[in-house]
Design a protein around this nucleic acid. Structure first.
Lengths: 231, 231
DNA sequence: AATTTTATTATGTCTAGACATATTATCGCG
DNA sequence: CGCGATAATATGTCTAGACATAATAAAATT
């Protein structure tokens, strides 16, 4: 463990244990320097990491303080559906329902008008039946190769993950009742609660793909964790 | 903008634009040093930030490479319910339904057996009616002051946020149909899809609170974003 | 007393090195 | 040709300073 990592761990320990309460002024950098017998840059590195994880705040002239807990943000693991289902139920298969090339009709306002799109729908199957319904649009401007990709052997999610680097994504998570289409494909009564995960993906500011995935509410949930470790 | 920030932005730009594809070896540190005319530590700082955001990978002796996109994680903003409702509907009120002190009965396996708990249930109201139902347990071992806190004037969420630093949290997000209790309190038909957010919070490894919040599916959703910026 | 100026202080960023460490390429040897 | 030792190299971490900047406290001025 490096010196910086040890300093950081020590401070985390004292905050987590409650020994240093929110608002407490932790030792000045120069005090930590003499305590640990290292250079100021090393102390600074440890403190910078703690700032990033939201555990402390630093103010010039005033010093460094234990932060008051405020924003609830957590790292959400967005699972690769195929992998998640395979791990959970032991088997996985993607069934292609429809595939078409069309232009953006303005329904999904995130693609530029008249963007050529590949529109794919399908079902993710687990060992115990249909698991999720997927409705996806892929911009052929951003990903020309998607025009001819074969989604009967590979799910669009897996194909895109392999093929296209993305740099920004937005997720919207909501609860809906299964509509007629989803209910039919997932073999559920209409109105059954489903977890709807919508994802918009961009690369360099240009939309790459939009996907709407409806999961059976009784068989799927998302887990998010927050730890100050950072990574 | 600092030198390190500019180096980082330049590299991000080239990756996002597709000019540097995944697997591409970006210039060695010493090359960036001469390109930008700065010290190696400054280049290193920029690259370390990019590693954290998952955009690049560094290998000793080999060099630094554009990472293949594989990240399936996003930063989820867990909103302060009161604030979120107030912002959305213009007004907010917490209605305390029940409050009791009891010991852990083993139902929630995360508290140690016989931990004294404050058990609180209530409703979050927006301008257009009940919005969410909350069921919360607070460990009186971890937060003794919670025994006498007045939750008729302040919601437990807001009180805890102000009062208790936490260091770890786990969220579980799922879709459920409103059960009799939730349906009654939210004035919904039974079975109406609701977004259920459960949160376990720890401090220094000890459980602080568990909360289960059921939101009307038609009026609430969660948004998560991923951008390589870091934050 | 109220306001402006000045000095002080802690953090923010940076430099120009140093040594450590992981990894790879190469060389010599059997 | 295969294999182990060796050298080369890029990153990982660190040092001991330097100057910049923001915020505050003290001093000087109005």
């Amino acid at each position: 463990m490096s010196i910086a990592a040890r300093i950081r761990a020590d401070i985390e320990e004292r905050i987590a244990s409650g020994q240093w309460q929110p608002g407490y002024r932790i030792p000045f950098e120069h005090e930590l320097v003499s305590e640990y017998g290292c250079a100021r840059a090393t102390v600074g590195k440890a403190l910078t990491g703690l700032v990033r994880s939201g555990l402390i705040e630093r103010r010039r002239k005033a010093g460094t303080f234990v932060a008051y807990p405020h924003v609830h943000s957590a790292v959400l693991d967005i699972p690769d559906i195929g992998k998640a289902i395979a791990e959970r139920t032991g088997s996985y298969r993607f069934e292609l329902l429809s595939s078409a090339i069309r232009s953006d009709d303005g329904t999904n306002g995130d693609f530029a008008p008249a963007t050529p799109l590949r529109h794919v729908t399908g079902i993710h199957h687990g060992a115990d039946g249909p698991f999720a319904h997927e409705d996806r649009l892929i911009s052929l401007t951003a990903v020309p190769r998607a025009r001819d990709a074969d989604f009967t052997t590979e799910s669009p999610s897996a194909w895109l993950l392999q093929s296209v680097p993305w740099t920004q994504a937005r997720h919207k998570i909501s609860a809906i009742g299964a509509n007629l289409e989803i209910a039919g494909h997932l073999a559920l009564p209409r109105g059954t609660p489903c977890l709807l995960v919508e994802r918009w993906t961009w690369r360099a500011g240009a939309p790459v793909t939009y996907v709407s995935q409806a999961f059976r509410g009784d068989r799927f949930d998302l887990v998010a964790t927050f730890t100050p470790e950072g990574r």
